[in-house]
C-alpha cells in the first residue's frame, strides 16, 4: 500500500506455510513453548476475558489452550485457510491489514508470526486499535539472537564457496526496539521478556529441515535466487559443526523468543505522576536532611 521497504516476501511466506501446514505440528516446539507461556500468564491475571483473537492460528494449537482457560469466544485468523481451526470463528486475514473493527477484543494473542511482518509498527498499531480499553495483548516474536550460529555459518560458507554473501537468516527485533514500538502503538504498561531457547540437533541440516517444517524457510526479498549448491550447503554444515558443535557432535541452535505483553490504555491503570507534583519531601520520608550534590549542574 505504501512504499515501505519490503524485507519479507509475504507471498512466498504463505506458500512456505501452506506446504508445511500438514506436518507443522511435528515442528511446533517453539509454538508450544509460547502457548504454555501464554497459559501461565493468563492464569496469573485476575480477570476473565470473553472476546479473544488469535493472530496466526497455527491450527488449533493456541485456540484449544485458550478454551481450556475458559475462553468461549475465540476468533482465529491466519494468512492461509489450511492453518485455521475447524470452527465458525475463523477468518483468513493478513497481519499487515487486520480486518477487525476498532475496540472489538479484550484479548489478542499473536503467536510467533509478527517477526515476518514488513511493517511491525503498523501491525502493532492495528492490534492496539482492535483492543477494547484495558484489553490485553500477548505477542511472541523471535529476537535478535535467534539462529546466530546459522547466520554465521552461511555467511562464512558463502564467502568461501561463492564470491560473496547473501542474506539467509532474517533480521530479528531487539527487546528495546519492541518496547519502544509498543509505546508508539499506543499501548500502556508494555513489558518485553526474553526467553533464550537452546535446542540441539544431530546436524545443521536437521536444523534447516526443522525450520522448513515450521514454514520458516528464507523468505527475505533480497535472498539469492539461485538454488544452493550441494557444495555450499555441505560447507555451511561443516562450518556450523566446526564452530559450534558440542563434545558429542550434536550442534546447538539458539532461538530467542521475545514475549510482549501490553494493555490498551484505561483510566484504572497505574500511571506515573507528573514531575514536580509531589506533595511530600523524600527527605522527610527518610528522616534525613536534603543536601545538594557537589557536582550538581548549576548552568541549567
Amino acid at each position: 500500500m505504501t512504499d515501505l521497504p519490503k524485507i519479507f516476501d509475504r507471498d512466498l511466506l504463505r506458500d512456505r506455510r501452506r506446504r508445511a501446514a500438514p506436518r507443522m505440528q511435528n515442528h511446533a516446539f517453539l509454538l508450544e513453548r509460547f502457548r504454555d507461556d501464554v497459559v501461565e500468564r493468563l492464569a496469573l491475571i485476575q480477570r476473565t476475558f470473553s472476546n479473544a483473537l488469535v493472530i496466526g492460528a497455527h491450527g488449533s494449537a493456541i485456540g484449544d489452550a485458550l478454551a481450556l482457560c475458559g475462553l468461549t469466544r475465540v476468533v482465529a485468523m491466519d494468512t492461509i485457510p489450511e492453518l485455521l481451526p475447524p470452527n465458525e470463528w475463523a477468518v483468513v486475514g493478513d497481519e499487515e491489514a487486520l480486518p477487525f473493527a476498532a475496540a472489538t477484543f479484550d484479548l489478542i494473542i499473536a503467536p510467533l508470526t509478527l517477526q515476518f511482518v514488513n511493517d511491525l509498527p503498523g501491525a502493532l498499531l492495528q492490534i492496539s486499535r482492535s483492543l477494547q480499553p484495558d484489553g490485553l495483548f500477548i505477542g511472541g516474536v523471535l529476537g535478535g539472537a535467534t539462529l546466530h550460529e546459522l547466520r554465521r555459518a552461511w555467511l562464512e560458507a558463502e564467502a568461501e564457496v561463492t564470491d560473496g554473501a547473501s542474506p539467509r537468516v532474517a533480521p530479528f527485533a531487539d527487546v528495546r526496539d519492541l518496547g519502544g514500538l509498543l509505546q508508539r502503538a499506543g499501548f500502556a504498561l508494555p513489558v518485553v521478556d526474553s526467553d533464550a531457547v537452546r535446542v540441539r540437533y544431530p546436524s545443521a541440516l536437521a536444523l534447516m529441515q526443522d525450520l522448513r517444517g515450521m514454514g520458516a524457510g528464507n523468505v527475505l526479498c533480497d535472498r539469492r535466487r539461485v538454488p544452493v549448491t550441494r557444495r555450499l550447503l555441505m560447507r555451511a554444515c561443516e562450518i556450523y559443526a566446526e564452530k559450534f558443535a558440542d563434545a558429542d557432535g550434536r550442534v546447538p541452535a539458539t532461538f530467542e523468543m521475545l514475549v510482549m505483553t501490553a494493555w490498551a490504555p484505561h483510566e484504572s491503570q497505574q500511571k506515573p505522576l507528573k514531575p514536580g507534583s509531589a506533595t511530600a519531601r523524600l527527605a522527610d520520608a527518610l528522616g534525613t536532611t536534603e543536601a545538594r550534590l557537589p557536582d550538581s549542574t548549576e548552568t541549567r
Binding site: V75, E88, W89, V91, F100, A101, F105
Partner: peptide
Amino acid sequence: GPRIDPRLLEVLVCPVSK
C-alpha cells in the same frame, strides 16, 4: 453448507479501508 456466523460478521471490517 457452512454459514457465516452473524456475530462474526459484526466484528469484521474491510482490511484496506477499515
